[in-house]
Design a protein around this nucleic acid. Sequence first.
RNA 1: GUGGGAAUAGCUCAACUGGUAGAGCACCGGACUGUGGCUCCGACGGUUGCGGGUUCGAUUCCCGUUUCCCACCCCA
Length: 426
Amino acid sequence: MIKAVRGTRDLLPPETALWNFVEAAVRDVFRAYNFQEIRTPIFESTELFARGVGEETDVVAKEMYTWEDRGRAESDRGQSLTLRPENTAGVVRAYIEHKMWDRGLNKLYYIGPQFRRERPQKGRYRQFYQIGAEVIGPASAGSESPARDAEVLEMLSTLLDRLGITGWNLELNSVGCANDRAAFNEALRKALEPVVGKMCVDCQRRAVTNPLRVFDCKVPEDQPIIEKLPRISQFLDEGCRKHFEQVQEILTKVGVPFSLNDRLVRGLDYYTRTAFEFTHGALGAQNAILGGGRYDGLSEALGGPAAPGIGFAIGEDRLVMSLQESAPAESVLKKPDVYVAALGEGMNGEAARLVRELRRHDLVVDLGDESFRLKKSFEAATKAGAKYILIVGENEVKADAFALKNLATGEQVSVQRADLAKKIRQ
RNA sequence: GUGGGAAUAGCUCAACUGGUAGAGCACCGGACUGUGGCUCCGACGGUUGCGGGUUCGAUUCCCGUUUCCCACCCCA
């Protein structure tokens, strides 16, 4: 048997109803903030991610699905392509390619699959889905304003509340701009030098490759050492500090709860200033339901003009998972308004005609087959969860009035063809 | 990439220290030829994840492998 490959999965009904519910809510909420959808290709030039996300990041260094595409002619060299491991780089690439600064401030969102070759576990798949949004444009259009950071965070809290997800926690930090981070990294390296020997092996590795990640360490013995390390907050320049303060001010004013976490670091190189994560307790080790932040230098890193931006990505798989506890898929599934039972030879055509009319009235209609015994039709209607069953038999066709039975109450009436849709909708 | 656990019918799970695979639910049919849910009866359903080994005999023990789960790592 051929099976779905490791780390990929099929989403089947009724669970897909939950995914549709989430995506409908997302489109609805984002629209209220005047975000518009962008769709970028699922594969891109490998170079885009190397330069955008960062050559040294785990995502780029060991998790990408990359292959050499054929050249157009024998003499052509192939091109290295990669399935997108995230979508921000693609959006910024499109921003540059289509000179989208001409539109002023861009507020964009996307929903789609991403690919990372990680070891699968709960809430972590090799093909996974992200819902993300990006605010990007020239600084003169307001893209750099703390108002944008706050608006994005407030939108997220609204979305989670709207979905009925309770118990989320917003963790906030500022990782500063490029200069701050350089100074901070330097100080961190210095501070680590004398103490790193006493830390866990992972920290010893991090101290060399990516000192920031030391703050992610969960080993209890290392915590007293980590507590004494310098913090990014001490290295923020005037502008970054002010910016971060204003973000917090607005959030407080609009009533979005958050907690500061100056150990919050992000794994993608492009993040600057505001960085955040929404976590949810019931997700196991993969407790980050969404994450994001500012990326003020990304456009330039990709060869574009200065274009400050802020964005986030929601792990849709994890969002659906945390939703499943409060809202089972069945509860958001639209059940048929009516099940139409064709009864007796020659009734398929009559039933089809009737069903066509009902569906044109926007009713959800399920249709049986004339070979079914009436008992079987009732069973099928009940199993489908239909509100009504409508019988299309010889007697009904002759009278042009049909037996309509409410499956919950058991009440049955004869209804003229012209009145059916109205009666069913009641 | 590392460590641990698991894999038996469509689903949830049984099967004693190795003795030849079973239940509930679901599905299909009947009791009931134009009236469902309840009940009763019946049928269907399995290379015990896959491959090798030990054994008279393996779902059971051993090795390999694949997948899933948990944790590390990393991220969403």
